[in-house]
């Protein structure tokens, strides 16, 4: 009986240990499969031509495999989204943290969190049927489906994420900081800008980086509203085709195992590496933030 219990303990410990490795296995699996499915492309195309090539014609009789326009499109759209989600997200977080009354806060914080769960396809749909026609009329554009619309929708979509995370960072700043500032005669605005926000600075940066990482990896919104032209964008009013929407739009047509299929996996690999780098930066910044405020967990 005694021995049986002890063996059972060992089995449970072993089982949980094995299962805990699942995340590592999946992450490694993603990397390996992306490599496996994308490497055949590079027997035909030089890696530098792939990244810096300016033409993406996967289905032409002489196909070209340059994803520079796609990378630039992702970059532009993400940058544009930042102009919306950073001020509005951080501003809203500051509002909730500093100005909102207790009743407002109890209501606003969960509301923002709930709004963060609106699916991206709903944003994309809204962009297509409401935002694009509106912007087309407002700016007299040939098409409303362009980088600008994608940026705006993507920016709005990222607001709840940025706001939630930034608010978390702000509420980690100890009250003693602000009390010290009040004690030397600073008012609430000065305290907020010169003490609280800098103290939460790297936490807020983490929020922004994670928001950005989400925007780069976001698929459905840009697929539906960015317009889909594979050209290096010259203005925000042109249609563009970011990396994510290229994968999503073309995988359906690509023959399994063809070069086109391999090329789309290569784009996935590039995308994966970019977001991985962003997440690692975010984690480093976040760690510094915790050290600075002495939070250990």
């Amino acid at each position: 009986m005694e021995n049986f219990t002890k063996i059972k303990e060992k089995i449970y410990r072993g089982g949980f240990t094995a299962l805990a490795f699942s995340s590592l296995v999946f992450l490694a699996g993603i990397i390996l499969l992306l490599l496996k499915e994308s490497l055949p492309l590079f027997r035909h195309v030089r890696f530098s031509d792939f990244i810096f090539g300016r033409a993406w014609y996967p289905t032409a009789s002489v196909p070209e495999w340059g994803i520079f326009p796609l990378i630039m499109a992702s970059f532009w759209v993400t940058l544009g989204a930042l102009f919306i989600c950073v001020p509005l997200g951080v501003g809203s977080a500051l509002y909730i943290h500093e100005i909102a009354s207790a009743q407002q806060r109890v209501f606003l914080k969960p509301l923002i969190e709930i709004l963060a769960s609106i699916p991206s396809v709903v944003y994309g749909f809204f962009g297509m049927v409401v935002a694009a026609p509106f912007l087309q009329k407002a700016f007299g554009l040939p098409t409303g489906l362009c980088a600008l619309t994608a940026s705006i929708i993507l920016g709005i979509m990222a607001i709840p994420t940025v706001c939630s995370l930034a608010e978390d960072a702000l509420s980690c700043v100890p009250d003693s900081f602000r009390e010290a500032s009040y004690a030397v005669g600073a008012n609430r605005w000065q305290t907020l800008m010169r003490v609280v926000l800098p103290a939460a600075g790297s936490g807020v940066s983490t929020a922004i980086i994670l928001g950005m990482s989400r925007a780069i990896g976001e698929t459905m919104t840009v697929l539906m509203v960015a317009g889909g032209a594979a050209i290096v964008p010259r203005s925000f009013l042109q249609p563009v085709r970011p990396m994510t929407s290229t994968i999503a739009a073309e995988m359906g047509e690509a023959v399994m195992g063809s070069l086109h299929y391999n090329a789309l996996f290569s784009i996935g690999l590039v995308l994966f590496v970019i977001t991985l780098v962003f997440n690692m930066i975010a984690e480093m910044v976040c760690k510094r933030f915790r050290l600075k405020l002495g939070i250990d967990r």
Binding site: L24, L34, E37, G217, E218, T219, M251, G268
Partner: peptide, 27 residues
């Protein structure tokens, strides 16, 4: 290592999960 892989898995774009699922489960 496990914590790190969980954090990174959380940051992988959803379309890349799609590719992974296509290559592993479908194919």
């Amino acid at each position: 290592i496990i914590r790190m892989s969980i954090n990174n898995l959380a940051g992988v774009p959803s379309v890349v999960f799609g590719l992974f699922g296509l290559a592993l489960f479908v194919k």
